[in-house]
Write a protein that binds this DNA or RNA. Structure first.
Lengths: 118, 118
DNA sequence: GCGAGATGTCCGCCATGAGCTGACCGTAAT
DNA sequence: ATTACGGTCAGCTCATGGCGGACATCTCGC
């Protein structure tokens, strides 16, 4: 039967990674969708979709959201890079711990990328 | 007499950065638009536009192009990050103050996870 | 219990732009 | 001057970005 550790393509999409970082950053700041959205001049619904990787934000909107979050594009990119490293890391145990950590503070299922074991 | 060193805000857009990296990588490999495009199942014209930052590629297409270039998404992101660092030469210390402020409210920042390159 | 408020998600609509085809421009050979 | 190659421009269509409105969950206070 299928070996879980031999998944064909658990490859995350860029928009998913970006969305996760955005949401994480926002929640770290204890801010709401409404707050950040209005500051970035986008609708709450849309920001929600972006954060969950449902919609592909334009570079301009991305910049506006970063602005609203008080972070630089470079920070976002760096975070995404880190998440990619974690995904790709050959050490599975460490990752699970961290994934559990992050999920623990989120009251509802955050539908994360982390689940895919590799 | 405009001071060149005091530009208003020449903030680069993500799609521009990505496009630049894509083109650079392709040219480093000595390959043509047609080659890469057909392997990624996109049109030459479109790939050209993406590389020049005219069009915003979907995450799926980005993945396909990376695939065709034989690089990982992580490589692309890393390159973009590097380019951003170069842009942002002056005063890297200033930003840390603000960043630290906001991060301070989040108790759970698992900062230890390093970026050893693989 | 009920209602109200705050936060986030789902549904469906419309205008924008992603992604295509075809024509075109610069080169350098032949 | 014609062919061939590598890349760009113009224009079109239809998928999707981005929104307004209703809705699910909470957590309060009555």
């Amino acid at each position: 039967m299928a070996d879980i550790s031999r998944r064909p393509k658990p490859r995350p999409l860029l928009r998913t990674l970006v969305g996760d970082v955005l949401r994480r950053r926002r929640q770290e700041q204890g801010r709401t969708l409404a707050e950040v959205a209005s500051e970035a001049n986008v609708s709450v619904q849309y920001l929600s979709e972006v954060e969950r990787g449902r919609k592909e934000p334009s570079s301009e909107i991305l910049a506006a959201v970063c602005d609203s979050l008080g972070i630089e594009l470079a920070d976002l990119v760096a975070d995404v890079g880190r998440d990619l490293m974690i995904d790709r890391a050959p050490a599975p145990v460490l990752r699970l711990d961290q994934a559990r950590l992050e999920r623990a503070q989120s009251p509802q299922r955050s539908g994360g990328v982390f689940l895919l074991a590799a």
